[in-house]
Simulated assay, not measured.
Amino acid sequence: MNAWWLAHAGPTRLLVVAALLLVLLLCQRAWPTRGEAPARGRRWRNLGLAAVSTLLVTLILPLTAVAFAWQMTTRGVGLLAMVDMPAVLEFAVAIVVLDLAIYWQHRWFHVVPQLWRIHRVHHSDLQFEVTLGLRFHPAEIVLSMLYKFAVIAALGPSLAAVAVYEMLLAAFALLTHADVAIPHAWDRQLRRVLVTPDWHRVHHSVHRDETDSNYGNFLSLWDQLFRSRIEQPRDGHRGMQIGLPGFRAAQEQTLIALLRQPLADDPLLPANRQ
């Protein structure tokens, strides 16, 4: 089974992402919450940034998270390798702990000024729809991968757990950024455990207190547990403004500008907050 994951985890993840992206693009047209027409070239820029990030990560890091997990497993490294528990329970623990780790990674990218400069490329998008889930600076992807390597080494999860969580991470990045209207009664129940588009949209508000909330990727439990949740945006989901106040000009939304953005100062923030 480990051999199957090593050979097929990457292609399977790519297939899941491509299929889900197509489905959500169609769903956004049929059942939108905001229904904004995409700015000219915006989706292609987001896809282009994702392509650059993927290429650079492939060149810089020779191992995927699944391959790294295999190396750690064969060496018996990590906490779970030292604990005897049923495979199903070990799998579930690994998924939950990996998601907790990603919650804190996301939160640190907001708190540490140098990391925020990189992460704000994701937040400077002026619209909230599914391709925003692909808009991350290459430096953030590289740092995220190195962080995951450290978590995997400490935890010692199985290949299956890492592969499945990598797919969940990618799938929920698309799902939670999709401009898809979920009935309020369903959303109210789902968000008790899972991150929904309405839950995560608050995180992309121009208001800084709302931006610094709702960090969860897959499970909403962490925002509830660590008191970082905001249930609804103050301006309403249809009326709220998306993006960052200091990066709204058209020339700041080009692919080259997005790649350079971590080096640029935010004119609306004090130096110690950038």
Rank of each mutant, 00 (worst) to 15 (best):
L263F: 15
A30K: 08
D265L: 14
V17K: 09
R234W: 09
L49H: 05
R234D: 15
P32C: 05
R107F: 00
F172G: 06
M167Y: 05
L258H: 15
L155T: 15
A50Y: 04
H204S: 14
H137Y: 13
L98T: 10
T176I: 02
E90T: 15
T33P: 05
R40E: 00
D235G: 03
R191G: 00
E231Y: 03
V88I: 09
V142P: 03
Q232N: 06
A163R: 07
R120G: 09
A257R: 08
T64C: 06
A92V: 07
I242R: 13
R40M: 00
Q241R: 14
L221G: 10
A18N: 05
V77Y: 06
K148C: 11
T176Q: 04
A173W: 12
H119D: 01
W199Q: 05
A19T: 00
M72P: 04
I141D: 10
P32V: 05
F128G: 10
L169N: 14
R135E: 12
V112N: 06
I256W: 15
G156H: 06
M82L: 12
L63M: 14
H137A: 12
D209R: 15
L169A: 15
L134C: 13
P157H: 11
A160Y: 03
G133H: 06
S53H: 10
T196F: 07
W108C: 05
F247I: 06
V77E: 03
T64Y: 10
A139W: 15
A69N: 05
A170I: 02
N214F: 10
V17G: 08
A37S: 02
S53K: 10
R191H: 01
S228Y: 01
C27K: 03
A161D: 04
R40V: 04
S205Y: 12
W4T: 11
F109L: 10
V93I: 06
P197V: 00
L269E: 11
H8R: 13
W104G: 09
N2W: 09
A65W: 08
P267L: 13
D235W: 11
A18I: 07
A67V: 13
G239Y: 15
A37M: 01
L258Y: 14
A170E: 00
A161M: 07
P262K: 11
I60G: 00
L219N: 02
A3H: 08
L89A: 15
A81L: 01
R229V: 08
A250T: 14
L115F: 00
V93Y: 05
